[in-house]
Design a protein around this nucleic acid. Sequence first.
DNA 1: TCAGGGTGTACGACAATGTCAAACGCAGTT
DNA 2: AACTGCGTTTGACATTGTCGTACACCCTGA
Lengths: 254, 254
Amino acid sequence: MPGNIQSIERAAAILRLLSGPTHRLRVVDLSGELGLSKGTVHGLLRTLQHVGFVEQDRESGKYQLGPALLHMGSSYLDGNELRTRALNWSDSLAGRTQEAVRIGTLHEGQVLIVHHVFRPDDSFQTLDVGSLLPAHATALGKVLLAGHTYLVAELAKRGFASFTEATISDEGRLERELARVRERGWATEMGEMTHNQVSCAAPIIDRSGVTVGAMGIFGPPERLLTARQPRGELLAYVRDAARAVSRELGAIPW
Amino acid sequence: MPGNIQSIERAAAILRLLSGPTHRLRVVDLSGELGLSKGTVHGLLRTLQHVGFVEQDRESGKYQLGPALLHMGSSYLDGNELRTRALNWSDSLAGRTQEAVRIGTLHEGQVLIVHHVFRPDDSFQTLDVGSLLPAHATALGKVLLAGHTYLVAELAKRGFASFTEATISDEGRLERELARVRERGWATEMGEMTHNQVSCAAPIIDRSGVTVGAMGIFGPPERLLTARQPRGELLAYVRDAARAVSRELGAIPW
DNA sequence: TCAGGGTGTACGACAATGTCAAACGCAGTT
DNA sequence: AACTGCGTTTGACATTGTCGTACACCCTGA
């Protein structure tokens, strides 16, 4: 790997920090975190500001992400084949199941939500598109991990965070769970990330056979489950929809 | 303005091209467009790919935007004070008016949609968050331009595109329209961007008195208009909501 | 009112850094 | 089989970004 442009890598590191839990950071915070001199960070920030990637709060002097990123994020979605192909199918899946639908793909070992259809009722729901979810604690993530085995060992180094008492945070148990996912062709998750919230999902596969995404529904257990298992008809709808999208992507019907 | 880091500016230019109408571009397209050597562009792309800002379609070799941008875009929204403060008010505005609500801010002379609440019925609607709309052909844009007068002359240099026969594409007419917007405190738009689609909007003002955003509703004329003017009660709701958000931002009540 | 520590910002000098043009390998065409 | 187009790699040059220091500014507390 001959030469990566380091000023760009540093700029990206700054943006990554700014998209973390603290949305506004000072120059010294960034320079400390990155181990760079104040002046260097300031130069990077100035150009990032000039291109609209960051903006500065004139009162506090702190820096935050800029509007250009929002537009580029939505442009990414427009060009994303997975999402484009899945648009219709996810709508009809939501209609059939009467549940919220999400489509995710892997990004840095987490699940990036690229599409989200609200549950078709009038309840207030917040859009998850653009969110990063933990892979080991969501049905979408399990499906994706099942298709990219090498990742599990890598993620294990950082450890698997526990969100509820149901979270699978042991590598061995997770591996066994993923093996089941692979053989059955779908995954479930039972309150492993949020209490009173369960989900199931199936893989989306492209023409070369790799799992490029996952599609699933989520909601309260009393609606999705019978006898501690996903209701059969819901599961069938999910798997059918994911298979339909795969076929649109050029996968050989299976 | 001593020294902007040019590799970052060039990287940003690449990303801007990739977020244009053509979502997949080749190295030569980019190098031609930017006037840079193929090798340079390739180096930039490699680094951008490494940080997840672009990805390469392995079959065609073309480059497109990457998933990291999606996450950063949504992170921008999380940290955006305008949107955060407006969340509740836009929901209630949509409920009261039974119409779709949008909130926009200025970005590079256009209207960047930072929030969008669907019309509360079951019709299929596509999310506009992240979209860039022309400022001169939307009610949101007129409100924003009315608060940033200097921009009109600047935009006039590039010309005002015509979308329908109602579009105001003459600078003088637009200036007069904006003067009316300023004195009335709200703007309308009647099929000037899309046929059979009208909108009205009011300004959102921060503690220092500058117009930082605009909030409005849009929909078919038969629901929004009476006698070729926005229905009084809808307009009142819009203005009330925008004023409420302004107050949350610290603006002095007026 | 005046020091003090904190911040964001500007300025240089040095050399590490990114750039360019030319060459390579690999497709699909002709 | 030669050719044209692409993405990619290489290596030498000097442009470019980096670093430390120094400045201007805003708070805080005495």
